[in-house]
Write a protein that binds this DNA or RNA. Sequence first.
RNA 1: GUGGUCGUAGUUCAGUUGGUUAGAACGUCUGAUUGUGGUUCAGAAGGUCGUGGGUUCGAGUCCCAUCUUCCACCCCA
Length: 458
Amino acid sequence: MSNQKPSLPKGTRDFAPKVVHKRNYLIKVIRNVFEKFGFQPLETPTMENLSVLTGKYGDEGDQLIFKVLNSGDYLSKANSNLAEITSHQLTPQIADKGLRYDLTVPFARFVVMNRNEITFPFRRYQIQPVWRADRPQKGRYREFMQCDADVVGTRSLLCEAEIIMMLNEIMSALGIEGYEIVVNSRKILTGMATYLGHPGEESALCVAIDKLDKIGTDGVFKELKEIGYKKLELNKLEPIIELTGSNKNKLAKLREIFGTNAPAQAGLVELEAMFSFVENMKGILETVTFDPSLARGLSYYTGIIFEVKMKDGSIGSISGGGRYDNLTGVFGLPDVSGVGISLGIDRVYDVMETRNLFPEDITSTTKVLITNFGKNEEAYALEQLNILRSNGVAAELYPDAAKLKKQMSYANNLNIPFVILIGSDEVANKNLTLKNMNTGEQSTLSISEVVKKLAQNK
RNA sequence: GUGGUCGUAGUUCAGUUGGUUAGAACGUCUGAUUGUGGUUCAGAAGGUCGUGGGUUCGAGUCCCAUCUUCCACCCCA
């Protein structure tokens, strides 16, 4: 057998122990906030039937779904002449499953399938990996973890307000500053398209104005011209996307501008209501920016939409979400409104890592290492090890009677905060030498004193 | 999916117009120190130069293909 070089599929990664510790910390903080807001955990399968996934993310989204080849002699069951069809046409004949593309659609599927068991309104959070056959870039992977929280079965804008509260709380719990929660409403975008003389064409409008940050007003206008916008219409758009001032100011000005435009006015009213809910909860609004040019988000959003981004622009958005009125409709359950957000923890991780925001003590699970001096001390050491563990102190004994230097560097490299030395003196005196690896302090103690110290030091 | 880019030790990178034995730093291991890690000093190990072809007397260096990385577009966490 020839030697084969091991490799990973494009856009996937291993996570070494120290990285997993940090990711777990991140997930723990986010989960705690989700649960504090009353969300319940849900998990769904890695694979969904392709019929569940396709058609939910637009044509381009469908291309990005990883398909799972059918088992068995799948070709004989495909009833086409291979030479005569495109790969695109062949796919549905040889694959009927696909990898989860996001967490929202599987959630919608779950809600429909379990509608009789679920008590509405249903708040659930879900933290699982998703897969996209995208071309990788920095902060873009083919396998990545999403943290979603959604509420379905209510149209109350209180839910939108709580999402703002949650996002603020997650960011402050992680110690991340310099972020911005950008909000807008799909209804404003719909109204805007009509106002500009292009009713029903808001998706083309969205694609263009969403790039405002990147290509500027001139760039956006150039793109819009290419899809048929006239000078006069662009003149009407300009004051809208160049609005400045406080959120309240922008909302007030837009109410004037849009006049009797019903969808736009409805969107503005909703945003005002959301802001006032946040104020009543004593929430923070300084981090929230209303931006009528925010247009991102999947096609299923129908109300208020959110995006969290870093002000320094160091990475793409770290969270996105919004309200959707009819996600379950395609599965036969109409009129269930929901609102949710999705956090990309790989991106949050990158932000935390570059800013050094991870606490130092999270990269070790072991609290104390007992050094191994050899046969004579072994029985006593094992006894102490057992006592530590049965008192809930994460402890390990170095497995070989290696040089102390080696054992100490082992503890040092793994960030184990304490080391217990058990040599002939300790065995004879029935005590332990405990060394604090951070301060270098060392003291002779009884096992009960050590347990007390390490248990409280949690 | 379109266009470009990168790949040399575990890691980050040098490597001249193609020329003998491919270097450094950090990390690792050993010793200075047989009961003490982080600092210091001495030494050692570690490479099919991403992979496969080609040009050449000779390729890390040039050409082609392929994989990977990163970037722009598209889209998105």
